[in-house]
Amino acid sequence: MAQPAFDRRRINGPEESHPPVFIDEEPSQTRSVKSRKGRASSDIRPIFLQPGLISQATGSAYIETERTKIACAVYGPRQSKGTGFHEIGRLNVEVKFAPYSCQDRRAPMRDAEDRSIAMAVHQAIVSSVRLETFPKATLDIFITVIETDGLEGCVAAGSIAASTALVHAGVEVFGLVVSCSAAAVGDEIWLDPTDEESKISGGTLVLSCIPALTSITSVWQTGRMSPKEILGCIDTCQSRCNDIHGVVAQALSSPNVPG
């Protein structure tokens, strides 16, 4: 939750300030786009994934898909503090944005945290973790968004990073969770949309699944889509998830993973 308290630890800027709008950055009025610029509709942005970047954490991962850059650290399982007895372990996800991660500055403390993304990531990975193997304990996952390009891509990349970090930490999981986003633009389905692309789309969908078990862990759809479009999106996302699964598996098994 956002904290309304005044931040005494930092030098606060003026009460009101606005990011400047540059002429060449005026929001493009390309409402009706016929075809995608730069890549084919079923192409995703290339993924760079490296486990073990944060040496202090039990497990960690860093993911980069063009302009989306996310670092993720896993601590635990460690003793739950201040909560009652829990027969199964607790999974705690926190998402924090760096102040410089978005177009508009996200003030530290005030709006750095985003619970809705944390909720989506939690939903994506919770069913893969064998929580019953560590009663009374908590797994903390901290996700730091360094740069973002589209909310959907952020959720998808965050889920992949969290799952990779969990495996890197040696936590027992049923399978790797990978995630893929899609946007319905006109009659086409564009995978892994950027911020601009999802703004011109009619609706977006993020699918998280465990390809090893062919099961879906989370569907997160917003905007207007027909049931047929949704099923189409799910199918294309799922087949692309199989490819991403290969990327994650390769990153985890490569010999130069630290830790």
Partner: peptide, 25 residues
């Protein structure tokens, strides 16, 4: 042709694609 304006899964369970299709229908 109805419009789907949102879709969410909540909870720890899992689904198969065929199940999901049936549920949407």
């Amino acid at each position: 042709s109805p419009n789907v304006q949102g879709m969410r899964t909540l909870g720890t369970g899992e689904l198969e694609v065929s199940q999901l299709q049936e549920l949407i229908k």
